[in-house]
Design a binder for these strands. Structure first.
Lengths: 332, 332
DNA sequence: CTGAAAGCGCTTACAG
DNA sequence: CTGAAAGCGCTTACAG
């Protein structure tokens, strides 16, 4: 029923090989035949069967995207959707489809990847998080399957990755606060299994040190990426000592902190989020946040992966995406 | 290099046909051979090439998901991610992959679908929004390509769809407010091009009518799905008359309303959102919202589509997913 | 400049 | 119960 290359060939009185060559605009085909074949394609409304092409070419022009599983609310973090957008926009431009998948529970992620790679369904894979000693990375490396991670991996040389300069981004935040006279600065991060938490914590510590402030473990929390966990961490900190400022690794966390501060009538305590979420500007007070350019992270992940797949000469195995501190009322 | 059905056949001393039959657990193959072939598969770590299988079977076990384009911030609405989750969870259980795509600008959506359908890459398609006179629906219907929409389409009989009972959901909200003594009730919805806005507005009007309250066009706004647009609409309403309550079609809209109310010191005005977003419970005051069960909407969309693809006997062409009014401080 | 043939890795009707 | 052959719809090395 659907029209194939054969139908076009018949219509144009040429062989299927010729039609195929016209599709790829092969220079050895005469302009006259090209015309004829194209006319036939148009009349028949022909569209190449991409599955057949994939089988022949051993390449699918499809990228696999592993998103956080249903066991956490992580996926609800706007970061992932923004990154998806960037990935998708670039991929589309390059003629790639995007398959997304996830594991119900985190431990199954390697299995999901095994299936995906084994099925030959994707030419490359993007991981949207990076952990210490990441098993998924180890697996893909061993399979020699093209992949890119968003986040800085253990092995910065062997892996393709895109990330912000999280150490410096957080350094700048804390340094700015200290320059404004803040001394007691709390840190509330997401789970420490994620590299991103680690690097932002490093930036925090570095800024304290460079300003001659001793770190205080009672002011440092690493919890889940939830509003509620952040609220509780803040209450713990407040129970210990009143800080001048609290920095966080995510706007969602900052929202929880703000709620706790507000309840305790401590709106004047400075507060900084990360990701520059839509809502951060509409909070009262509006929340200073670091724009990490999630869409751009996604775009460059796509770019790096696709050049890898297409074996282009690549000048780098990573991109550092710039961040931007967006100051709002919460630090004024 | 990768192991194929031939390699397994050689290893097990059978023909490729037999291996194929073992994979599909064909009952005509003796248990002895099955054993032998399975052993060979395990030793060689064989995984079927799904692309080849797709070409043979003319079916990809892949679902196409059309998400909102980059021209709007709609995608940032948690609804879509939640729906994605449900779609994906069910699809995975049934052995389906999910390809997502979008158009940069809305007008290109039909083109995107044309490509997707023509390429033979997906067995069916899910649309995540429904509009009046929806061209995408018309296209898919004409192509006779399996699809499901989330939302109630013009043609409720011919199209497969899942939706909430939006008329009644909003009716209940407004009726509840009226029973609490509210009389001047504003309505702020998303763009009226979306069916969902229309149905929720209908519910609002119905509730007014059934309680003998005249509608007042100055209290009704249909704008973009943004916090900012909602803020402005609220200011407009307040400029006209102080309402007892404002109902909205989305939490994001409710957030904007709340900000405006707060600025005008009108926190006592009742407020209701839709979608029961994570953050609605953490607002001050916490916001009453309607849980539309986005994940379930997605699950049933998946279910309806897959039974359609697999030509199962289907008892219905739609599912109405229940909603739940979650009362919080904003209506107390 | 163009065509016939082989091949990508599967499945399945047909034959035995 | 199992195998040889044909076919899914493409691409491309080889031949002319």
């Amino acid at each position: 029923m659907p029209v194939t290359i054969k139908d076009v060939a018949n219509r144009a009185n040429v062989s299927p090989s010729t039609v195929s060559r016209v599709i790829s605009d092969n220079s050895r085909i005469s302009d006259a035949t090209k015309e004829r074949v194209r006319a036939a394609m148009a009349e028949l409304n022909y569209q190449p069967n991409l599955i057949a092409r994939s089988l022949t070419n051993q390449t699918t022009h499809t990228i696999g995207l592993l998103l956080p599983g249903s066991d956490s609310d992580l996926l609800l973090n706007p970061f992932f959707v923004q990154a998806m957008r960037g990935i998708s926009a670039y991929a589309k431009k390059k003629g790639y489809y995007i398959l997304f998948t996830h594991a119900e529970i985190e431990e199954d992620e390697v299995d999901v990847l095994t299936d995906l790679v084994g099925s030959k369904w994707v030419d490359g894979i993007i991981l949207t998080t990076v952990k210490d000693n990441d098993k998924r990375i180890a697996f893909l490396q061993e399979k020699k399957h093209p992949f890119v991670v968003i986040g800085r991996p253990d092995d910065e040389k062997l892996t393709y990755w895109v990330d912000n300069d999280n150490v410096n981004a957080m350094f700048d935040v804390v340094d700015m606060l200290i320059k404004k006279g803040k001394k007691t600065i709390g840190f509330i991060g997401g789970s420490h299994e994620f590299k991103v938490t680690k690097y932002r914590l490093l930036g925090y510590l570095k800024a304290l040190k460079s300003n001659g402030i001793d770190m205080d473990l009672n002011l440092i929390y690493e919890k889940d990426y939830t509003e509620e966990a952040a609220y509780e961490a803040t209450m713990d900190i407040l129970g210990y000592k009143q800080p001048d400022a609290i920095v966080t690794t995510d706007d969602l966390i900052a929202f929880g902190v703000q709620r706790a501060l507000h309840e305790k009538n401590l709106d004047q305590v400075s507060l900084v989020g990360f990701n520059n979420t839509l809502l951060s500007q509409y909070k009262t007070p509006s929340i200073t946040s670091v724009d990490i350019n999630a869409e751009k992270l996604g775009m460059f992940a796509s770019k790096l992966l696709i050049s890898q797949i297409e074996k282009e000469a690549i000048e780098t195995n990573n991109y550092i995406i710039n961040t931007k501190l967006v100051e709002r009322d919460s630090t004024k």
